[in-house]
């Protein structure tokens, strides 16, 4: 006499079949009328594969354009098996896609692909980051004037930084907005900052000194330390101009005074 499995066992068996075409799934527990049970299960596997493919296509449009539809489907299917979805919210699906993509045999002749994917994941992080009100120019100047010691700056949560040995920004723009002209890539890599601006993700490739400054600020360093990091890249680095750009782009959300025991130097005299 056949006994129906407990719900948990049934669901484990069902989900195994959705993630692995070699798994037969709970076909013996299914009504066998009109369409064979294995074919009915394949409908669900196909649906789930399509859902995950579309989620990746939404998050990684440049990668999809660069590799073509057939290869992207292959990469998505591989990723889905290697890194099953771990959330009922599909916005979280795809974090490890860049590393998975790089490990595919045919991708190694296109070494920039992983970094294009990493840039796209940072775009996703920027899109979903929490909202925090930025300081106006007047508020910033008022806080600055009231400072009596060293300070840190809180940047907008959507702000992301990314360094690549490849010209990822040009690659991303070419992939998402192709032109008839042949793409001529610069030989150098990119230091990219990304942030959310009026609902869209803005991206800019910036010089090494500005990047060092923003990177230091984002990591919580003082303005002094950020200035020093930037000056190590370029002794003529213009700190006030860099900070003014951040304020103008609504990316500074607070100036945080550093307690005297943390630092005795004032970092803001140059701004």
């Amino acid at each position: 006499m056949r006994t129906a499995p407990a719900l948990l066992d049934l669901q484990r068996c069902f989900l195994d079949a959705l993630y692995d075409a070699e798994e037969t799934g709970p076909t013996e527990q299914l009504v066998d009328v009109g369409i064979e049970p294995a074919a009915r299960l394949r409908i669900y596997r196909h649906n789930s594969e399509l859902i995950h493919l579309e989620a990746l296509r939404t998050t990684f449009p440049a990668v999809a354009a660069l590799v073509g539809e057939a290869f992207f489907e292959h990469a998505a299917a591989h990723y889905r098996c290697m890194q099953p979805s771990r959330s009922g919210n599909l916005q979280a699906f795809g974090e490890h896609f860049p590393e998975c993509l790089e490990r595919l045999p045919n991708v190694q002749q296109f070494p920039y692909l992983g970094d294009v994917a990493r840039l796209e994941w940072r775009r996703q992080v920027a899109v979903l980051a929490s909202e925090t009100r930025a300081l106006t120019r007047a508020e910033f100047e008022s806080r600055l004037a009231a400072l009596e010691g060293a300070a840190r700056m809180a940047l907008h949560p959507s702000m992301q930084r990314f360094v690549s040995a490849y010209p990822v920004l040009a690659l991303w723009q070419y992939a998402t907005q192709p032109t008839a002209e042949r793409l001529t890539l610069p030989e150098s890599g990119d230091r990219v900052v990304l942030w959310r601006s009026e609902g869209e993700v803005a991206m800019a490739a910036i010089d090494s000194a500005s990047f060092a400054c923003i990177d230091a600020l984002a990591r919580g360093d003082t303005l002094d330390a950020a200035h020093a990091a930037a000056s190590a890249q370029d002794p003529s680095f213009d700190l006030p101009a860099c900070i003014t750009s951040l304020v103008a782009a609504s990316l500074v959300t607070e100036i945080i005074p550093v307690q005297p025991e943390e630092s005795s130097s004032c970092a803001c005299s140059d701004i």
Binding site: A4, A6, L7, L15, I51, P84, S85, R86, G88, F93
Partner: peptide
């Protein structure tokens, strides 16, 4: 249901019509 053991199908999967 759509998930078990931390893996999600992200689809709306059928349940058996059981007392359980």
């Amino acid at each position: 249901w759509g998930a078990v053991g931390g893996r999600h199908s992200n689809d709306l999967l059928p349940l058996p019509f059981t007392e359980e």
